[in-house]
Design a binder for these strands. Structure first.
Length: 711
DNA sequence: GATGGTGGCACC
DNA sequence: AAACGGTGCCACCATC
């Protein structure tokens, strides 16, 4: 869709039902087939079509007609099935995307909850029942997250309830009247819904975001159908080795833990086989068991790393890392490899609150670094990885218009330049490594809203005072960054929304101020300080009892006499409220940055897809937030890369009005022998110089084979 | 035995 | 004055 709704000659509602060939519906475009196509020309004129010789031409022509707008709900799903049939629908209005953009970030939603609940009570699905449910739901403090399925959206926007009872029925046989009715209801209201949502999008100036997402849908469909080429051999080798190490470690660890922590008296040790037996009962994956054994608050890396000098703890941490890898990145991933040796994933373009793309089944956006070593390409192609360099910091610099920060992003080394300003290091004097690191840490932490305490807890600083000093100096050096973040925090917590550089919106559920707030706030502050002073802890921990009774019974503080039941309850409400607002402020600070980054990548993806489709020079295989993976034709690859680089950099420049340079990696990740120090190091297969038009295969020619240290 | 919540951790 | 933004998946564990 590229123009306003009313500009189309014709508008139709489209939906499909699918079959797995065994009497059930299918969610998998690779194995499933279209069983039924519903096309609504109007509320009353609805076609239910099978896809066969007689209907194929008609359906294809209609869906591919650029003068006909197709309204669908989650059309990415339908699109994949159509493409498998060589039908390439164009001009789409996706009502799910529209809803997701408009309500991005919305939390609790009663309509979704009611729709969920009412599914169990179809016979009485009338207004009275809705009201009944609604009043119950409203009394609850927590509800379901905002949902964007067709049922919830129709109910929310048009107050229409449709049944989904038939969804999983067999669509391949002759349809019952009830099935026909259901099939029609799925498309009957789509046009009306599209107009309602379009009006909402226009009200908030979200048309351009909607156009962008609509075009992106096509790119994601392609990526989902194509996937990324993987070397199963390399993956399995890696996995096997990890598994071997893990099992070895597991055996050792259990015995050592048993001996050092579990066993109370020595005499059991005389029977070594019994000892092994007992050790086997230990479950290293049980956080509960391990917490008890180590006597630790929790068994997270952060907590246990404090005892790293204990060899058993160190071993345990190593074990956990291996376990994670073996359990997560094995069959769940390799099982998805298709017959072409390609790994496919599913993407969602609008599910996230910030507009980032998410990946699932399996998630290809959170695979460990070694994943890149398994990526290859078709014989005539080369894998290419391109990512935006420091894009979030550049976004922060240009959106805030802080001259000094902008200057830093344009210098040779951003973090050194920042350190110079934060720590007042004179020009010409070298920037000490530790100061550079501190400035870097704070630059990353600030857009997340990290506090001084947070920085200490995560081990970036030794004391809260020092962390606070660096944060203060940072804001002093970059005053407009401070103003910018503060404005966004305010917009989120007071207006209830923030926008990114393209106008993408995120909404926030601002909590109602508790009635007790004004009455008790002064006293709350007093107690807050008292608790901090006398108990050395935060009031939140101090009051951390579910009931007043337990607070009185279990707390051994002298301060309890100061707190009546009324105050206890009021303080808890105040804490809760303040924490929620603080979280909204942090989200508000971060959203415009993260969302702008997402918008840049999405804009680039759309243009890149267009370029690559038209020229047939390669494909996009994956995108991980600020990076894009390609498989490009060997012929003329340098000129292709130049165009791609330019498209990506221009997309960023247009959006933030400042440079967004990219880094280019060409070729598989491989092990290479350094010519000078003779050490093996890892690098991409090809050396490429875009200025001099040079491309060299390091595996056959060693001209550029120098490791980082010897360059 | 399925389901949902939680803790933990991989990535940007 | 509270204590790091955004994801998805695993094992465990309580619950039905």
């Amino acid at each position: 869709m590229r123009k306003s709704l009313s500009e189309y000659k014709k508008i139709i509602g489209v939906d499909i039902e699918t079959t797995d060939g065994k009497g059930k519906g299918s969610l998998d475009p690779f194995t499933g087939k279209i069983a039924l196509i519903q096309i609504a020309h109007s509320n009353k004129n609805i076609e239910l079509l099978r896809l066969n010789r007689e209907t194929y031409r008609y359906i294809k022509d209609l869906l591919e007609d650029p003068e006909v707008l197709k309204i669908g709900h989650n059309f990415k799903f339908d699109m994949k099935f159509f493409i498998k049939e060589n039908i390439y629908p164009t001009e789409i209005f996706d009502t799910m995307i529209a809803s997701e953009i408009y309500y991005a970030g919305a939390g609790v939603d009663y309509v979704s909850e009611v729709v969920e609940a009412i599914k169990k009570d179809y016979e009485r699905a009338d207004e009275v029942l809705f009201e009944e449910y609604l009043s119950t739901m409203r009394k609850r403090t927590k509800g379901t997250r905002f949902q964007h399925n067709l049922q919830a959206v129709l109910k929310r926007e048009l107050n229409i309830f449709i049944s989904k009872e038939m969804q999983t029925s067999d669509w391949s046989k002759e349809l019952t009247p009830a099935q026909q009715e259901y099939a029609k209801s799925d498309v009957k209201y789509l046009e009306q819904l599209a107009f309602a949502l379009w009006k909402k999008l226009k009200d908030k100036n979200l048309e351009n975001i909607f156009f962008l997402e609509t075009q992106l849908m096509e790119v994601l469909v392609f990526m989902e159908l194509t996937g990324v080429k993987i070397s199963r051999e390399i993956w399995e080798k890696r996995l096997k080795e990890t598994e071997r190490k893990m099992l070895e470690l597991e055996k050792e660890l259990k015995l050592e833990i048993y001996r050092n922590y579990v066993k109370k008296n020595d005499n059991v040790g005389l029977f070594s086989d019994l000892e092994e037996e007992l050790a086997r009962n230990i479950n290293l994956n049980s956080a509960l068991q391990m917490r008890k054994i180590f006597g630790s608050e929790n068994v997270s890396k952060l907590t246990l790393e404090k005892q790293k000098d204990n060899p058993i703890i160190e071993k345990f941490l190593h074990y956990k890392q291996l376990m994670k890898e073996v359990s997560t990145y094995s069959e769940g991933y390799l099982g998805k490899l298709n017959k072409y040796g390609r790994l496919t994933s599913e993407y969602s373009q609008t599910k996230t609150a910030t507009g980032r793309i998410s990946s699932s089944n399996p998630n290809l956006q959170n695979v460990p670094g070694w994943f890149k070593y398994t990526i290859s390409a078709e014989p005539n192609r080369i894998p290419v990885f391109i990512d935006y360099s420091q894009v979030e910091l550049r976004i922060l610099a240009y959106l805030s218009q802080d001259e000094s920060f902008i200057e830093s992003t344009n210098s040779e080394d951003l973090h050194s330049a920042n350190a110079r300003k934060v720590f007042n290091i004179p020009e010409g004097a070298p920037v000490p490594k530790d100061l550079r690191k501190k400035a870097k840490t704070v630059s990353f932490a600030i857009p997340y809203g990290t506090s001084a305490l947070g920085l200490v807890q995560r081990g970036f600083f030794d004391t809260q005072e020092e962390a606070q000093r660096v944060i203060d100096s940072f804001y002093e050096a970059f005053p407009k960054v401070k103003t910018f973040l503060e404005e966004n925090a305010k917009s989120a917590s007071e207006l209830g929304y923030t926008r990114d550089a393209l106008g993408r919106i995120r909404v926030y559920d601002i909590p109602e101020k508790p009635k007790e707030y004004d009455k008790y706030y002064e006293e709350y502050k007093l107690i807050y300080n008292l608790v901090k002073e006398k108990e050395g802890k935060n009031i939140r921990n101090f009051l951390d009892y579910p009931t007043y009774k337990e607070f009185i019974e279990k707390s051994n503080s002298e301060l309890i006499s100061l707190i009546t039941e009324d105050k206890f309850k009021a303080f808890k409400k105040i804490i809760n409220y303040r924490m929620t607002v603080a979280a909204i402020r942090r989200e508000g600070q971060n959203h415009p940055i993260q969302a702008t980054s997402a918008s840049i990548t999405k804009t680039a993806l759309v243009r890149l897809f267009d370029y690559l489709t038209k020229t047939n020079r390669g494909i996009i295989t994956l995108s991980v937030h600020d990076s894009i993976f390609f498989e490009l034709d060997k012929d003329d690859i340098i000129s292709t890369i130049k165009v791609i680089k330019n498209i990506m950099e221009e997309a960023g420049r247009e959006i933030i009005k400042g440079p967004t340079p990219v880094d280019v990696e060409v070729g598989k990740k491989v092990e290479i022998l350094c010519k000078k120090c003779k050490q093996i190091y890892s690098d991409n297969q090809y050396y490429v110089d875009l200025e001099k038009d040079i491309i060299v295969d390091k595996l056959t020619q060693d001209t550029y084979n120098y490791c980082e240290n010897c360059k």
